[in-house]
């Protein structure tokens, strides 16, 4: 028994070692490929907004880049992304460097969840003082099958589990109640 366990432990350790050894030291992540840009003026700061996919479609994610003229050094700011269906402005998020394009701010692989107009509002602070500006973007209808179908497919395991538990419940009812 002990020998068998030791053998199994050795096998597991070997598999784990092979898995780790097979991991590439540096994985190739897709570079940010901007295919379309828009301009927005946030007070004294012109910002170039870049998109890795154009036109925008709801639910379809993409890279956004926000590049103020003169670079991001010495500047900070916030971004809100508010759909037209929402009456109040969405939560402010700090403008952060794009993880795969560190010289600009950005959002890595982010989707606009709703179809329709969205307002991107930038509030910047820098050497020329504070500034604010907004860009309106339109998200077209989402690609792919209807979301109702997608969600129906996604919940099949839950339905199966509930059905199984219901059958097991019925079959064990008498024994469970008898204690």
């Amino acid at each position: 028994m002990r020998v068998r366990l030791r053998r199994q432990a050795t096998l597991l350790a070997t598999v784990a070692g092979l898995l780790l050894a097979a991991t590439p030291v540096a994985q190739a992540y897709e570079p940010v490929n901007i295919v379309h840009t828009e301009k927005v003026q946030a007070g004294p700061y012109p910002i170039t907004v870049g998109f890795s996919t154009w036109p925008l479609r709801a639910i379809q994610s993409l890279d956004f880049t926000f590049a103020p003229d003169g670079g991001i050094e010495g500047k900070s700011g916030t971004l809100t992304m508010t759909p037209a269906t929402r009456s109040t402005e969405s939560r402010k998020r700090p403008l952060v460097r794009h993880p795969r394009k560190l010289e600009v701010w950005g959002l890595d692989i982010r989707a606009l969840e709703e179809q329709g107009d969205w307002t991107f509002r930038f509030r910047l602070d820098g050497p020329e003082g504070p500034g604010e500006g907004a860009l309106t973007l339109t998200a077209l209808e989402p690609p792919g099958p209807p979301m109702a179908l997608n969600w129906s497919l996604s919940t099949l395991p839950l339905i199966g589990l509930v059905a199984f538990l219901a059958i097991a419940w019925r079959r064990t009812r008498a024994e469970v109640l008898a204690g």
Partner: peptide, 20 residues
């Protein structure tokens, strides 16, 4: 492939994966 690599937990395939 269709919707991009948006890392959200509540996409239909992710919920299907979690439930299974």
């Amino acid at each position: 492939g269709v919707y991009g690599f948006d890392a959200v937990i509540d996409s239909p395939p992710h919920i299907g994966l979690l439930l299974s």
